[in-house]
Every structure is written in C-alpha cells, then in structure tokens.
Amino acid sequence: MAKIRLEKVNYTYSAGTPFETRALRDVEFEIKEGLVTGIIGHTGSGKSTMMMLLNGLEKPESGRVLLDGADIWEKPKEISKVRFRVGLVMQYPEYQLFEETVAKDIAFGPKNMGLTEDEISARVREAAGIVGLDAGLLEKSPFELSGGEKRRAAIAGIIAMKPEVLVLDEPAAGLDPAGRERILGTIQNFRAQTGATVIIVSHSMEDMAEVCDEIVVLLEGRILMSGSTREIFSRADELRRVGLDVPEITGLMLRLRDMGAEIDSIPFTVKDALPKLMKLLK
C-alpha cells in the first residue's frame, strides 16, 4: 500500500527570474508503507526538492503529494501536522544540535508537539535506545560526543517525534566506516521496532544496496527508473550511462560475467555474491 503518492508533481526554482530552473517535472511515484526506499541521482537532479515536498517544507507548483491518500496541502494551515508525521533528517544534522544536554536536544521536537513531561522523557529514552546511545550520554553536552554519536543524537531528535515516515538526507556522509555501519544499523533498527516507512537519499550505492528495499532514480528532475533494489542495480549499463554507479561488488560481478564466468543473476551485496561464486569455484 502507498504511504506517500506523488501525482504529476512539478516544481520550479526562482520562477520568473533568469535563473528559473525546473527542479521536478511531472514526477509520479509511490513510496510503499513500511519499506525502506532509496532515492539516488546527481547533485541537482531534484532529490532535495523532492525531500522537502514530502514533508511540506515546499509546495508543489502543480500536482499533489498524498500522505495516506490525503493531499497534504488540502488544509495549508495544518501543514505543521504533516511535518510531525514525516520527519526530515537533514544533511550533517549534528550541526543543528544546540541544547545543553543530549536529552534536552532529543526532547526539543516532542516538546514542540505539546506532549506531557512524562511522555517526553519516555520518548527521549526510547529514541536514544533505537539509535544506540547509552543512557550515560544523555546528560552530557552534545559537544562531548564523537562525530558518529552526535549524528545519532540528531536522528534520535526526529525519531522521538514518532514520525510515520522518516526521511534522511545522506545519513552516513563524512562518517568513518564503523560510524557508517552504526547509522545504517540505526535505520534498520528504527524500521524493525516501529514499522515506519523510511526514505533515504544517498550517493553511496553500497549503503543503498545494504538497506533499501526499493530505489527511485532521479535524472534532471524526472524519474529515470524505480523498482526493487535488485531490479535497479541489474540495470548497471543504464545507470553508468547517466554517470551513476552500482555497488563495487556488482561492478566486479558484471566484470566477471563479461570475462566469461557463468553468473546468472547479479548480486549487489558481498553476502549475496559469496554463495554464487563458491558454486563456481568449489
């Protein structure tokens, strides 16, 4: 079932000026409920615009954004409710930590929702648990945390609002490999514990292959392709033609096939690739 539907969505930047740019053109697709959907595309392909449209930070010029079947702009005055239901984690969200303690920072969103103190502190504990922050860290200043911990604290602040949809822009950018693993684990944890819908924008095809069920590819404001992760990464040639890529392991397996190895379906994670190769090599 579709959690979010975009219908013929158009969006133009700087309309009426010499810098007018069509960011999205007749974009139409569905985000399925309870799945992790990845959005890939170059800088300037319309990904960020799309993210802001999904939670009502931007309004489509024409077309509709439907959340659970209802147009989010039907009652413009109630758009802030949509922003609680669709939580947005921006790029490098740790730069926006500002409170004295980690706990207060995580509590900021729930406070704005007008919840009781008890409910707020329960949510802070729960969100910290999902992102794997020890209770001992909650009373520290955010600035005493490591880079990866800060990132997870910032994500916890959004999770604490219990969004039905969590949207993350480059959640692992700039983190070391272990920090990256933890962020991806956090996202999977969140989905498993809440059943919420997750949307991730990332340039890392390896990360996308690891966590996404579905992938949407944007090119110059249009949908180039969408489908299951397997379907999308099996179209490596098309992706490469437009300057995008496939995970390194997929590239390696395609190379082997081109060199004459008998590989029927192309894997996109190392875990998938291993049994296929063992069958050939044993």
Binding site: P177, A178, L252, R255, V270, L281
Partner: peptide, 30 residues
C-alpha cells in the same frame, strides 16, 4: 580499527576463508 575494506577485498578474503586459494594480492575490482 573500525575501518573496513573495499567490497572487492572483502570478497577475496571471504573466498579464501572458505578454502579458495586465490593467487596474488588483488585490491582493485579489476
């Protein structure tokens, strides 16, 4: 060290663990 290895190197390492005696010290996908 919390650093990991490229996917190609990971694959070679796993294959060797499972008894496939691959030659050399390949690191790039090629």
């Amino acid at each position: 060290q919390g650093l990991g290895v490229p996917q190609s190197v990971e694959l070679i390492d796993e294959l060797r663990r499972q008894g496939i005696a691959l030659e050399g010290e390949p690191v790039t996908p090629e």
